[in-house]
Design a protein around this nucleic acid. Sequence first.
DNA 1: GGCACGTTTCAATAGTGACTGAAACTGCTG
DNA 2: CAGCAGTTTCAGTCACTATTGAAACGTGCC
Lengths: 152, 152
Amino acid sequence: MDDAQHQYVDKVATFFTMFGSTRAWAEILGWLMICEPAERTQAELAEDLGLSAGTVSTQLRTHVQLGMVEQVRVRGERVQRYRLKPGAWREVMTSELGRIQALGDLASAAAPVMPGDRPDRVTELGDLAGFFAREWPPLMARMTAELEKGTP
Amino acid sequence: MDDAQHQYVDKVATFFTMFGSTRAWAEILGWLMICEPAERTQAELAEDLGLSAGTVSTQLRTHVQLGMVEQVRVRGERVQRYRLKPGAWREVMTSELGRIQALGDLASAAAPVMPGDRPDRVTELGDLAGFFAREWPPLMARMTAELEKGTP
DNA sequence: GGCACGTTTCAATAGTGACTGAAACTGCTG
DNA sequence: CAGCAGTTTCAGTCACTATTGAAACGTGCC
């Protein structure tokens, strides 16, 4: 990993750390975005990034669980390799719908515990969630269509 | 604050804590969503939620900076009151565009530091960011139109 | 079977940052 | 001006958790 690459990994790490992710998690993500070959073993990741094997194991597991990274087996090799999952970003965007619905549920759950005469604070959130719940699926469909066009 | 309300605040807090926010921050948000009257002083919030005055001051400031909460002066009173900012959720969604663009920048920045023969990992992210950069403004416009319809 | 390499688990450590409590500060009231 | 309620600031404490290092655990090769 040269200087420029190191700087890039740091940039990605800084960005995602701002939203509460751990440094190691974000560094692995950043490195997997640009490393060559794209398929890496845990031991290589640890070596490349100067992290312990334990950290890589743990953080990589969360990446896999979140669907950002997948295990691959390279023909002829018997080691476990990991790479950025193609289409992962798309999936993250698609799964946003679940979070929107959770917000909507939060709004619904508020109704019984607040005085009925001023529900506006909560109906606003509910309406918003409703709007996105309707708009999100067609938007995702358009997204998929457009991205496939680029990668035939 | 009765039991049901307490439970609701806890529910909201649990939800937002999952995404990296602090407990106090999320509790204040949850309580401001349902408390009556909606306008509260810092001292009241501290008392209601069992937080120290210092914590309330700090967390409330971040709420104000993020645009979720605003200061209001109630006629005749001279105390500082705070409430959930009307339209705050809408604004949060609108400002999502900034984060999308940041992701797009991250993708652009990757180009120089990776071998040119396999740029797919990064172009995917770039295309995605481009898609949202184009779609987001009209989507926001539709959102505003629809929500205004509900609150004439 | 034994060896080498990679991965997982886990106890211990280090570092961070949320939260508190007290003290300083502000602006209003009598 | 003294008194008071509310707010801000900040040093210190505490809890949490990210990270490490080492030890156990595979798993395929010799």
